[in-house]
Nucleic acid binder design. Structure first.
Lengths: 201, 201
DNA sequence: AGCTAAAAGCAAATAATTTGCATTAGTGGC
DNA sequence: GCCACTAATGCAAATTATTTGCTTTTAGCT
């Protein structure tokens, strides 16, 4: 059988505890200052003993990262808006909005704060999944379209950098990124620049 | 007078305490597991009482972020290698190396982990400072060269994204990014795409 | 030199974290 | 379906980190 590598024993109670703790964290993050969120308080709200949380997650950072990663999982496919390009524009704007909101920003930070990269990779994986859907649709319709690597490098990365280091990217900025990456598409049938591809997976 | 906005009273003792604490943190990060670095231990090594650290920095995360930000300040100008492009290539490779090393990665994470964006902005500011030097040199020699915004968006951002979310960028990858951003230079004298510029500062 | 207040030290009080042991409740064998 | 097995949780004591009121030191100023 093997349900998954994680949770050696995912049956009833463990799952309930995990759900209760996650929900407690989400509620508390919504209702109070993040600095006031502590493991003992979370435990109390989740009707769980603190040592359970310490044993399962280790510390607050890891727990917050775990919760954030699960919240960043997209629940819907990118909207169909008519063309690959406009799908991309609409999706990227929503992505930037969600990520640059106070809550979104904090979730990314929580994910990046822990030393293990598992959550961060999961997060990037979600993004790539969404982009692949858009790419596949565009190609199905015969549109020339950037590769996944190009989109990650020249649309997602600049947006994320600004969110993390600078200021929030607005809609015009995103439009500019997309214009630029689209204009590069199909520069010539066989061409230079195979060096960019590193994508893997 | 007004020495700076920070440190209302930067004279002798405060400065000594700050230096001792910073050095203690650097030494401990070099010598032990980060999970074992605690404020009481830092205080002991710096010959300072823990409450001093708590009052000045608040908590361990803020202290680590402060130390990391000060360590990321570049100490030298980008090397001159002959052309703007090769300056950029050399500098970007070194930047990526430093940032993707275990220590560099951790410093970025420490900086991003705190809610205030002051340290993150400082860090991005350092990068821009270095790039401006390269740009100025290139333009002085009449080379066509990308703008600061273009370099941040299409060279730095992809590198940083990979470091944070994915895997370390290698030299070929960076070369590809630079080729691409250079190939876009001077598409036409007066041109479209004024929408990309948001740089500020 | 002397005054003032910011910064640091000290120690007691509070809160978080760790840990050993007891209990509960999934999982698989029968 | 019952039983044995063991992972996961609960509980409470011990440890460690953090906060806080008060005192002492010392930089900055006149």
């Amino acid at each position: 059988m093997m349900v998954s590598k994680e949770n050696p024993r995912p049956g009833g109670r463990s799952a309930r505890v995990q759900a209760a703790v996650h929900q407690a964290v989400r509620e508390m993050l919504a209702r109070m200052e993040r600095a006031d969120v502590t493991i003992p308080l979370i435990a109390q709200r989740a009707n769980v003993t603190p040592s359970t949380i310490y044993r399962r997650w280790g510390d607050l950072q890891e727990l917050l990262a775990d919760v954030a990663a699960s919240r960043l999982q997209p629940e819907t496919e990118p909207l169909k808006t008519g063309s690959g390009r406009s799908d991309l524009q609409a999706w990227a704007e929503q992505y930037a909005d969600e990520m640059s909101s106070g809550a979104g920003r904090q979730m990314i930070r929580d994910i990046l704060a822990v030393s293990g990269t598992a959550n961060a990779e999961k997060c990037a994986g979600y993004t790539q999944q969404q982009l692949r859907v858009i790419i596949a649709r565009a190609e199905e319709q015969g549109e020339a379209f950037p590769t996944l690597t190009e989109l990650m490098d020249f649309v997602i990365s600049p947006i994320m950098y600004r969110i993390l280091f600078d200021q929030v990217p607005n809609s015009d900025y995103i439009h500019g990124l997309i214009s630029r990456v689209m204009s590069k598409v199909r520069p010539s049938p066989e061409t230079t620049e195979t060096t960019v591809g590193v994508s893997g997976a």
